[in-house]
Design a protein around this nucleic acid. Structure first.
Lengths: 228, 228
DNA sequence: TAATCGTCGATTGTCGACAGTTTAGTCTTG
DNA sequence: CAAGACTAAACTGTCGACAATCGACGATTA
């Protein structure tokens, strides 16, 4: 008798992986602003608060360092990253570079199935727009762009997008609010998809530039308004 | 009286940073092939061999994981990354994306000083070509491309380039040999610089594509010849 | 009075130890 | 003889402890 677990899509049982949990909690604390930018993250303090030893906290901190949420200073500890206007520009400039490339590749790989996935995600964006849940809206927005990277079928590129997304999440978290009209945002994704469907690299790049350039300017403006 | 330490050019005291040293030694071992791809990296073993405890080894391993040299499998440990042909394509495709962008930005920022730095680095490439030292040649090659990223003046982009370079170093290390004629390689950098000096984005991209596409094809060929 | 030195508490870097899990090897069984 | 169950060794994840180092504050000196 085959008792070998037939793979049902179970989400891998909320791991007993301490490092991951600590990393998630720290990320939340940072994004929600409970840990102010520039403030020190004391290993022993976090460890005590969570009831674990310093080892997992340390590893989680190193993880978040690589993700750009914390910065490590040898023998002085970890600090919550401060974002200057320059950092915003660096991040969005790189994002532009990545997504242009991803979109062109995605157009090349596009199938009816993947096309529908993008289409459906735009629908989700419209539905989410009614929910008055900005965090969710941002998340679904990223999901659309992440889909493009998935369709581009370059794992290294997808990982980079995820790293950038986590940095952007932090920035957005610091700003607090973001979009004025979520429906408007949802709509602006449509020309991007249309360009990908049509497949002219130049037109794709132009629409990606417009779309991301818009976000760039918005975020940049807000960051300059509320400086550290 | 101002006795405030007048800055004498002291070389910043070679760090006693264990993690960094372990990371460097592990990287060497991997690049030199003493740790075969796919083989397990046992924390306690490395620790004993280096006369340190497992803690710094663990942190170093995590670092190399983020750099793509090792892969971690929960509760099973770290393994030396195996590169398939797909991985090569992913990496070089992303490199192409990054360097196109960097070169265009570099052209925009180019000053007489930075122009000369690039020019001089091409000279170094020619000089190194006579040394019959392939590792050094590859290193100086990267230095040229890294310079472009520095001139582009996007720190996030520079970090990405460094990450990609470390992955490529590993691949090159596995292949062993690389170029047939180092002088030829040195020469192929000249049109890239010329295009950057001229400043037409399209021409820059075209030359970058040609230059990196060449390396891509060469490395790809060798990887397919010597599969895991 | 201002800059430097010395001291003390707080915090990191590193270590050895233990528990639970994985893996390799052996034995059993159909 | 192959496949599965069992056992023992090896390894990872986590912990608490200790020494080295850092930052702050008060003492000291010109």
């Amino acid at each position: 008798m085959r008792t070998l677990s037939p793979p049902v899509g179970l989400p891998a049982l909320a791991d007993a992986d301490l490092v991951g949990q600590v990393a998630r909690l720290l990320t939340q604390a940072v994004v929600e602003g409970r840990l102010a930018p520039g403030s020190k993250v004391v290993e022993a303090g976090i460890a005590r608060e969570l009831g674990v030893s310093r080892a997992p906290v340390r590893e989680a901190a190193r993880l978040l360092e690589q993700q750009g949420l914390l910065v490590a200073s040898p023998r002085r500890g970890f600090f919550v990253r401060k974002f200057a206007a320059d950092d915003i520009d660096d991040i969005y400039d790189l994002r532009l570079c990545v997504e242009r490339h991803a979109a062109v590749l995605a157009a090349r790989n596009l199938t009816p199935e993947t096309r529908d996935m993008l289409r459906r995600q735009i629908d989700v964006l419209h539905q989410t727009a009614d929910l008055e849940d900005p965090a969710r809206q941002v998340e679904e927005d990223y999901r659309f762009h992440r889909l493009i990277c998935e369709i581009a079928a370059n794992r290294r590129l997808l990982r980079l997008f995820d790293d950038l997304a986590s940095e952007m999440r932090m920035v957005i978290g610091l700003i607090g609010r973001l979009y004025d009209d979520p429906h408007e945002i949802a709509r602006t994704h449509e020309p991007v998809l249309a360009a990908i469907e049509q497949g002219h690299p130049e037109r794709i790049v132009a629409h990606i530039d417009y779309h991301i350039g818009h976000a760039w300017r918005e975020v940049g403006k807000l960051v300059r308004e509320i400086p550290a």
